[in-house]
């Protein structure tokens, strides 16, 4: 099963995200990086992508407010690279500023989730997310196998 990558510097937020993923029944292995730079080096370790397609994350949850390179800068960086990343990136941030949201979509984010204040909402949002990205994407593969 392809892993889920979470770029999040806050241990507390990471714990809550994991808790919510677990509650929704997500079983994907989780790779966590605290910084954007680290995430980039893990994604592009120098090997041709085609050789390790199975190891590439099936989804990335990216925080915006990160030490060093921030989430938005990472999106820009990915855009400029020759090698294109097939992994969809969903932003998970505290900011509900429309300018931030618009900028993320402009630079290729596949989704944007404002970190909810209540755990109940957290579970709901994460459930929506996994339902959409895991179920709808894996479904055609299964059909192809048949």
């Amino acid at each position: 099963m392809r892993p889920l990558m979470i770029v999040e510097d806050s241990d507390e937020d990471f714990e809550v995200i994991c808790w919510a993923l677990q509650k929704t029944g997500c079983t994907h292995p989780i790779i966590r990086t605290e910084r954007a730079e680290e995430a980039l080096s893990r994604l592009f370790p120098g090997l041709p992508q085609i050789d390790r397609i199975d190891q590439l994350p099936c989804l990335m949850l990216l925080d915006l407010n990160l030490p060093g390179m921030n989430g938005l800068q990472m999106l820009k960086e990915l855009r400029q690279m020759k090698q294109k990343l097939s992994t969809p990136i969903v932003i998970l941030s505290t900011s509900d500023n429309p300018l931030d949201i618009a900028a993320c979509y402009r630079f290729g984010a596949a989704g944007y989730i404002v970190k909810p204040f209540k755990l109940e909402q957290y579970i709901e949002k994460i459930r929506d997310l996994t339902r959409y990205w895991f179920n709808t994407i894996t479904l055609p593969e299964e059909k192809c196998d048949e």
Binding site: W19, L119, Y122
Partner: peptide, 13 residues
């Protein structure tokens, strides 16, 4: 807002 959300989340947890 960020730390406050953290406190709230942990209390809920």
């Amino acid at each position: 807002k960020e730390p406050l959300r953290g406190i709230h989340n942990y209390a809920e947890l």
